[in-house]
């Protein structure tokens, strides 16, 4: 546990050292947030509400989804893949560490730094420019925090799983790019899932992806409330545990494969 904390703390500090990259990322995220919000608002036209979304909440939605980009590394994470391909992974295998927990701790430190540097900061800037919706009471704020944490955890386990492809293929990065792109569609990052036709929404909710983004956003926007809220938090956890088990299993196979084929 102490090791987990120390790892996360270092990763947090490491992320803080990338000042220029952070600033550049922040500006880009805000810029595209503005474009996305103006497109969506234009689509609303004269209507004041579409599928439960108001103009205010759709603007908040664009802010939130942009604010989650860095926190959840929505455009891809390839550190583990790189480690496998360069052989850097051997330095970790030579330590008495669980590779899975190592990367989890590492990503937690990074995520917390990004949550503030490129999450909260985006929402603050949005607040200065627009009217926004907020969670309606303390309970919703708490639920939001929990679901945000679960969303990170689930996204990390998912990204880890994708990265494991590197043990089997030197071209795993292309495969990863495709999967991360697909995830952004099914998660509600590109469009709120509420605006999708019902059958497509149902399809999306059969995957883990809405539990990374759409659920968090709908809790924030007070669309998910009451017992449904607990149910969805529970499902987030179920996906986390399920994907964790699969990841650990595949990781063991991957390490074995590497140790036979050579690094």
């Amino acid at each position: 546990m102490r090791l987990f904390f120390e790892l996360a703390a270092r990763s947090f500090r490491r992320t803080l050292t990338y000042r220029i990259a952070t600033l550049a990322g922040l500006i880009t995220n805000i810029f595209f947030g503005l474009i996305r919000s103006s497109v969506l608002v234009a689509l609303f036209g004269q209507q004041s509400e579409v599928s439960g979304y108001t103009v205010t909440s759709i603007i908040t939605y664009t802010g939130l989804s942009q604010a989650l980009i860095a926190y959840l590394m929505l455009f891809g994470w390839y550190d583990l893949m790189d480690g496998v391909h360069t052989g850097e992974i051997s330095t970790q295998l030579l330590k008495p560490l669980s590779l899975f927990r190592y990367w989890l701790a590492h990503d937690l430190g990074r995520a917390i730094a990004h949550l503030f540097l490129r999450g909260v900061s985006i929402m603050l800037i949005y607040e200065l420019m627009f009217d926004l919706t907020y969670p309606k009471d303390l309970g919703h704020w708490l639920a939001l925090l929990v679901s945000l944490f679960f969303a990170w955890w689930l996204s990390m386990v998912w990204r880890f799983l994708v990265n494991l492809a590197a043990f089997w293929s030197p071209n795993a990065q292309g495969f990863g790019r495709l999967l991360f792109f697909a995830a952004n569609f099914f998660s509600g990052f590109m469009m709120p899932l509420g605006l999708f036709p019902d059958w497509l929404q149902t399809l999306c909710y059969l995957t883990p992806f809405p539990y990374m983004i759409n659920v968090v956003i709908e809790i924030y926007l007070n669309i998910i409330t009451g017992s449904e809220l607990f149910f969805l938090l529970g499902l987030q956890l179920v996906w986390i545990l399920g994907l964790s088990l699969i990841s650990q299993f595949i990781l063991t196979m991957g390490i074995r494969k590497l140790a036979i084929a050579g690094g």
Binding site: S90, L93, L94, R256, A259, I260, G262, G263
Partner: peptide, 11 residues
């Protein structure tokens, strides 16, 4: 390769 086998990195 020998060292990797001695350190447990290779089977």
């Amino acid at each position: 390769t020998t060292l990797k086998m001695l350190t447990g990195l290779l089977v």
